[in-house]
Design a protein around this nucleic acid. Structure first.
Length: 879
DNA sequence: CGATCCCGCCACATT
DNA sequence: AATGTGGCGGGATCG
C-alpha cells in the first residue's frame, strides 16, 4: 500500500521528506536530473495520508531506497567504475553518489535527524524558556507530534523527562502545561537535596571505590529496603494519596529515572556520571544481579533521558577514562548551585516585596501549581494520586484547600513545603511499603500548615505508626495537621517548655523526624541549618525542603549563590572554597574515628536505600551527606553547643563524636541514622533507640555528631519535651483550622520578624520557644531562632515520635518547608535574592557549608572538602 | 564491535 | 471498548 501511495504521493511529505528532497536536489543538482534513484524515490511518494503516515512512508521509502542506492553505489561502484563505462551513468552515479551521499547523509541519516535530542530541541524551540507567569501555555501532544512530524510516543519521552524537571506538567489527557525554566532551579535544588540523601554517599563511594561500594550499598539497601524500592522517589507526586496503593506502577520509570539521573549529577562532585554507574545505581533491585538485559535496557532509557537533558543544556556527553577503560559519560553543565533557588525573597524581603506582591500573586499561582503539580516533594508514594491531582493544574488543592486558602501565599507555600515534608516524611517513615502513609501525610501536612485539625487525635494515630499515616488522606492529614498545628501552637503556647535547651537539638531533629528516615539528614540539615538557618529559609520558599536547600546552599552555593540562579556564579565558587575551610575547623574532632570510615560506607548504603524510599525526604531534609558534613560540622559544633546548653545527656559529647566522625569519615553522618533506622518507619525509633540505647550504638548515633546528637537529643528532649510539644500540639488542635491559620501566622510572624527566612518552619511555635531557649547557637540570634523553631516542631514531632512520630513529623516537616518556599517564584531575581539569603544564612554557617564545593566542574574536585568525600571519583572525571 | 538509540509492539491506564 | 500512556527491547546506525 505504501508503495502505491508513494507513487502517487506528492511531495508534501512532512518535514523529513522535504529535507530529503532538498538534499537530493542539491546533491543532484537541480538541473541534473534527477538522479534516477532519487527521483524515483521521490516519485513514489505517496499522498499524504496523515502527516505522520506520509512521513513514515517517505522515510521508510526513502531511507531504504537511499540505502539501497548507497549500497548500489558501494557495490556497484566498483563494478561500474571498473566497468565504468557507462559513462553517463557512471558520471551520474558519481555525481549522484556524491550528492547522494550528501543527501543521504543529510536526509537519510535520518537517524540523527530524528534523534530524540533534535526532536526535543524542536520541541523546546516552540516554547519560551521563561514564559510569563500569566500566560499559560498548553501543549497538545497530538498537535506537537504532528507538527514535529513524529509519533506521539516520542513526544511522551520528551515530555516525561521535562515533567520530571517540572518544565511542564500534565494537565489533562493529551494536554500538558508549559512552565518553562522558572522553577528549574528549585527543582534542581530539591533533586540535589534528595540526591544527597539517597545517593550522596553512594556516589561518593562509587566514585572512589567503584562498584564495590555499590554492591555494598545495594545489599544494604536490599536489606533495609526490601522491596519497595521503586517507589517513585522524587516524583513530585501530589499528595493525594487517594490511591496510594493503587498508583502504580508506571510512575516509575522515565520520570523517576530522569530525576534520579539528575540527582546523580547534582550529587556528584565531578558532575560527571558514567552511564554504567548510573544504570547500576538506578537498577535498584537486587543487588548485584543486575541482569545484563536489564542493565542494557536501563542504559537505553538513560540515553533517552540524556538526549533530552542535553537538549535542555543541562548535560553534555563526555568520556571518562577510568582504570578499566573509557566509558561513556555525561557531564552536568547546568546550574550547580541553583541560586535561583526558589525564591529567595523572603529572607530579605520577607514577604513582600513590592514586586512580589504582584508577582507573587502571579508567581504564587504558578508555584502553587508547581507545587501542586509537581509537588516538589518528591512524593513518592502517591504516584497515582499525584497524577490525578497533578493533572489538575491550577486547582491543586482540592483537598487541602482550606489551609491553603487561609494561608495565602504563605499558606500555599507552606503547603508545598508541607507536601514535600510530608512526602519526605513519608518516605522516611515509611518503609517501602509504607509509602502510602507518606502520601497520606502529605495531605495532612499541608493542612497542618494551614489548618490544623485536631492535633491530638491525630497524634495518637500518627504516633502509633507510620502506617497510620498511610491511612487515607483524611486520616493522615488530620492527624498530621493537628500535629503540626499542635506543634506550632504548642510552641507558641508552651514556649516555656521549649525553652529548655533541648530545643536546639530537637529542632533539627524534629526536622529529621519529619523527614522520617531522613532524620539524619534532616538533623544535619537542621543542624547545619541551624547554623544556616537563613539559608534554609531561603530554600524554604522554594518549597523544597529547607534542609536540602540549606545543604545545598551551604555547600554548593555557598554564598552568593544567589546569583546565578541557574547559572553559576563563578564568584561563588571561590567563596565556597573558603567557606569550606571553616568546615574543616570542625573537623578537628574527627580524629576519632577511624571506624567511621567503614561505617560510613555502610551508612551510606543504607542511606541510599532510604534515599530511594525517601528521595523526597531527602529533599526536605536535605540530606546532607557529605556535603553536609561540612555544614554539619559547623552545625554540629553549634549543636554541640546547643546541646550542651540545652541538654544534655551528654549529647554534646556525641555531637563531638559525630563531628569527628564526620570529619574523619566523611560526611555521611546521616547514614548512621539511616542505618539504624533502616526501616523507614522506625526511623524515629532508630533515632531514639540509637540515641538512647546506643550507647552502644554510639557508633552510629553517637559517633556521628550530627546524627547522634539529634537522636540523643531527641530522646531525652523528646521525653522531656513531650509535654511541651504535645501539649502545645494538643492545644493548638483546639484552635483547629483557625488555629492553624493563626499558628501559621504566628509562625510566620516569628519567622519573619526574627529571620525572615526561618519563619516558616518554625512556625511560630518553635520560634518562640526556641528563641528563648535556644540562644546558644552560634549563629546569630537569627539563626538560633530558626533552629529552635525547627526544633520545636521537631520536638513536637519527636515527642510525637516517641509517641506518634510520624504523624508529628509529618506535620512539622511541612511547616519547615513551607517557610522557605514561599516565595515566590522563581522570578528572575533568583540571583539577587539568593545572594541575600545566602548571605544571611551564611553568616552562620554559610561559610562552612559551602566548603566542599567548589563547584567547579568536575575536576576540581577534590578540594579540600575532600573531607567529606574523599571520593573523588570525580577525579576520574576528566577524560 | 561497542555505543547509540529509533521504532513501534503491546501492556496497562484512563476515559 | 477505545484511546492514551509509556515500558521495553529488537535491531539498525553510528563511530
Amino acid at each position: 500500500e505504501n508503495i502505491l501511495d508513494r507513487s502517487r504521493m506528492a511531495p508534501k511529505t512532512p518535514i523529513k521528506i522535504q529535507p530529503v528532497d532538498l538534499s537530493k536536489q542539491k546533491g543532484c543538482t537541480p538541473e541534473r536530473n534527477p538522479i534516477t534513484p532519487v527521483k524515483l524515490m521521490d516519485r513514489p511518494q505517496p499522498d499524504p495520508w496523515t502527516p505522520t503516515a506520509n512521513l513514515k512512508m517517505l522515510v521508510s521509502a526513502a531511507s531504504p531506497d537511499m540505502r539501497d542506492r548507497e549500497k548500489k553505489k558501494e557495490l556497484f561502484r566498483p563494478i561500474e567504475n571498473s566497468d565504468q563505462s557507462d559513462t553517463p551513468d557512471s558520471l551520474q552515479y558519481d555525481m549522484i553518489e556524491d550528492s547522494m551521499v550528501d543527501e543521504f547523509e543529510k536526509q537519510r541519516p535520518g537517524r540523527k535527524q530524528k534523534s530524540l535530542g533534535l526532536l526535543c530541541q524542536k520541541f523546546l524551540a516552540r516554547y519560551p524558556s521563561y514564559p510569563l507567569s500569566t500566560e499559560k501555555t498548553t501543549i497538545s501532544l497530538d498537535e506537537v507530534a504532528s507538527v514535529l512530524g513524529v509519533e506521539r510516543r516520542r513526544i511522551y519521552d520528551i515530555v516525561n523527562v521535562l515533567e520530571s524537571l517540572h518544565l511542564v506538567s500534565r494537565v489533562a489527557k493529551n494536554q500538558y502545561c508549559w512552565h518553562g525554566r522558572h522553577n528549574l532551579s528549585q527543582t534542581l535544588k530539591v533533586l540535589q537535596d534528595a540526591g544527597e540523601l539517597q545517593y550522596g554517599e553512594l556516589m561518593a563511594f562509587l566514585q572512589h571505590k567503584e562498584q564495590d561500594l555499590e554492591y555494598k550499598c545495594r545489599e544494604q539497601r536490599k536489606e533495609t529496603i526490601p522491596d519497595s524500592q521503586d517507589s517513585p522517589l522524587l516524583d513530585f507526586s501530589e499528595p493525594d494519596c487517594a490511591s496510594a496503593s493503587a498508583n502504580s506502577r508506571k510512575d516509575k520509570s522515565l520520570r523517576i529515572m530522569s530525576q534520579k539521573f539528575v540527582m546523580l549529577f547534582l550529587v556528584s562532585k565531578t558532575k560527571i556520571v558514567t552511564l554504567d554507574i548510573a544504570a547500576k545505581i538506578l537498577i535498584e533491585e537486587t543487588q548485584d544481579t543486575v541482569d545484563h538485559s536489564k542493565f542494557k535496557t536501563k542504559v537505553r532509557r538513560l540515553y533517552d533521558i540524556a538526549n533530552v537533558l542535553t537538549s535542555l543544556g543541562l548535560i553534555t556527553k563526555v568520556h571518562v577514562t577510568e582504570e578499566r577503560g573509557r566509558k561513556p559519560a555525561f557531564k552536568w553543565i547546568g546550574p550547580v548551585e541553583f541560586p535561583g533557588k526558589t525564591d529567595e525573597p523572603r529572607g530579605h524581603s520577607p514577604s513582600s516585596n513590592p514586586l512580589s506582591g504582584t508577582q507573587r500573586g502571579a508567581s504564587a499561582n504558578g508555584k502553587q501549581k508547581f507545587t501542586r503539580h509537581a509537588s516538589f516533594s518528591f512524593a513518592q508514594p502517591c504516584e497515582g494520586t499525584r497524577r490525578k491531582v497533578s493533572s489538575e493544574p491550577s486547582s491543586p488543592h482540592q483537598e487541602r484547600p482550606a489551609c491553603v486558602v487561609n494561608s495565602d501565599e504563605h499558606g500555599s507555600k507552606m503547603i508545598n513545603l508541607a507536601t514535600v515534608c510530608r512526602q519526605t516524611i513519608e518516605e522516611g517513615t515509611r518503609n517501602p511499603s509504607i509509602s502510602s502513609p507518606l502520601s497520606l501525610l502529605p495531605a495532612p501536612e499541608d493542612s497542618d500548615f494551614c489548618v490544623t485539625p485536631l492535633p491530638q487525635a491525630v497524634f495518637p494515630v500518627v504516633q502509633t505508626d507510620v502506617p497510620n499515616l498511610s491511612l487515607p488522606n483524611s486520616t493522615g492529614s488530620q492527624a498530621q495537621h493537628p500535629a503540626t498545628a499542635a506543634v506550632t501552637k504548642t510552641e507558641s503556647e508552651k514556649p516555656a517548655l521549649l525553652p529548655s535547651q533541648p530545643f536546639l537539638c530537637f529542632p533539627s531533629s524534629s526536622l529529621f523526624m519529619l523527614c522520617g528516615s531522613l532524620h539524619e539528614n534532616n538533623l544535619r540539615e537542621t543542624q547545619s541549618t541551624g547554623g544556616d538557618v537563613g539559608n534554609r529559609s531561603t530554600e524554604a520558599r522554594t518549597a523544597v525542603p529547607p534542609a536540602a536547600c540549606q545543604k545545598r546552599s551551604s555547600r554548593q552555593r555557598p554564598t552568593p549563590s544567589a546569583l546565578a540562579g541557574e547559572e553559576e556564579p563563578a564568584s561563588k565558587k571561590p567563596n565556597v572554597g573558603e567557606s569550606d575551610l571553616p568546615l574543616s575547623l570542625v573537623v578537628p574532632k574527627k580524629p576519632f574515628e577511624s571506624p567511621k570510615a567503614e561505617t560510613k560506607p555502610q551508612s551510606v548504603c543504607t542511606s541510599a536505600e532510604h534515599l530511594e524510599d525517601f528521595h523526597l525526604d531527602l529533599a526536605s531534609p536535605v540530606a546532607p551527606e557529605a556535603t553536609d558534613k561540612e555544614s554539619t560540622k559547623l552545625l554540629e559544633s553549634q549543636k554541640q553547643e546547643k546541646c550542651s546548653q540545652s541538654e544534655d545527656l551528654g549529647e554534646p559529647t556525641q555531637g563531638e563524636e559525630h563531628i569527628s566522625k564526620e570529619n574523619g569519615s566523611q560526611p555521611f553522618l546521616p547514614q548512621y541514622l539511616y542505618v539504624q533506622p533502616t526501616a523507614g518507619l522506625s526511623n524515629f525509633n532508630f533515632l531514639f533507640s540509637a540515641n538512647q540505647a546506643p550507647g552502644g550504638i554510639s557508633l552510629a548515633a553517637s559517633p556521628l555528631p550530627s546524627v547522634s546528637i539529634p537522636c540523643v537529643m531527641v530522646p531525652a528532649a523528646a521525653l522531656a519535651s513531650f509535654p511541651l510539644f504535645c501539649s502545645p500540639a494538643v492545644i493548638s488542635p483546639l484552635s483547629s483550622a483557625a488555629d492553624g491559620s493563626l499558628s501559621a501566622a504566628n509562625s510566620m510572624s516569628f519567622s519573619v520578624s526574627g529571620l525572615a527566612s526561618t519563619p516558616p518552619a518554625f512556625m511560630g511555635t518553635t520560634a518562640v520557644g526556641t528563641a528563648k531557649v535556644s540562644p546558644t547557637p552560634l549563629v546569630d540570634a537569627q539563626q538560633p531562632a530558626q533552629p529552635p523553631l525547627h526544633l520545636s516542631p521537631v520536638f513536637a514531632r519527636s515527642c510525637a515520635a516517641v509517641k506518634l512520630d510520624h504523624s508529628v513529623c509529618g506535620g512539622h516537616p511541612v511547616t519547615l518547608l513551607k517557610l522557605q518556599q514561599p516565595s515566590s517564584a522563581p522570578l528572575t531575581p533568583k540571583s539577587l535574592r539568593p545572594a541575600c539569603h545566602e548571605a544571611f544564612f551564611k553568616t552562620p554557617r554559610s561559610l562552612g557549608d559551602p566548603v566542599c564545593w567548589k563547584k567547579s566542574e568536575g575536576n576540581q574536585t577534590r578540594n579540600a572538602s575532600s573531607v567529606q568525600r574523599r571520593l573523588e571519583i570525580s577525579s576520574t572525571s576528566a577524560d
